[in-house]
Amino acid sequence: MKVLYFAWLRERLNRASDEITPPSEIVTLNDLVAWLRARDEALDLAMENPAIFKLSINARIVPGDTPIAGATEIAILPPMTGG
């Protein structure tokens, strides 16, 4: 499974993506985010407030309680700023 990071999150992590194989107990997007944060201090700090991020499975934005079974691509999208 590929995890994509966008915008300022990608810049803070200094990478655009990760290839991961989550353990079987990781069932939902929320589980996955918690698991990723526990494994990566930089991601944990950047996602201090995970509720502000949008999540997508296979290019479709979905709620955090969505199961990840069958997902090939997960995206984490931070809130956008602009002017």
Rank of each mutant, 00 (worst) to 15 (best):
A75I: 04
R10S: 06
M1E: 02
R39L: 14
I20Q: 04
G64W: 13
P23F: 14
I26R: 05
P63D: 12
P67I: 14
I57C: 03
P50I: 15
E41H: 06
R10N: 03
L77R: 00
I57H: 00
D31I: 09
D40A: 08
L43G: 04
R37L: 10
N58T: 04
L32R: 02
I20A: 05
M80A: 13
E25H: 13
E25G: 02
M80R: 06
L13P: 03
Y5V: 01
A69Y: 01
D31S: 10
T66R: 12
F6I: 04
I76A: 01
P67Q: 14
I76E: 01
F6H: 08
L29Q: 06
M1R: 01
F53G: 03
A38T: 07
L32F: 06
T28Q: 04
L45E: 11
L55R: 10
E41M: 07
L9M: 11
M47F: 14
M47D: 09
A51P: 02
V33N: 04
A42M: 07
T21N: 09
I68L: 11
T72P: 00
R39C: 09
P23R: 06
A51D: 11
A71T: 04
L29K: 06
V3D: 00
D40F: 14
A42P: 08
Y5Q: 02
L36E: 11
S56L: 06
E11Y: 05
P22H: 10
I26L: 11
L29V: 15
E25D: 15
S56A: 15
G64Q: 10
T28A: 09
T21E: 12
V62Q: 03
P67F: 04
D18H: 02
V62A: 04
D40Q: 13
N30Y: 08
Y5T: 01
I68A: 03
V27T: 12
L36Y: 09
P67R: 14
L77F: 15
A75H: 02
Y5E: 01
L9Q: 04
I74H: 00
P23C: 06
G83I: 12
I52P: 00
S24W: 01
E73I: 08
I57K: 12
R37P: 03
A34M: 11
P79C: 04
I68R: 03
V27K: 13
G70C: 04
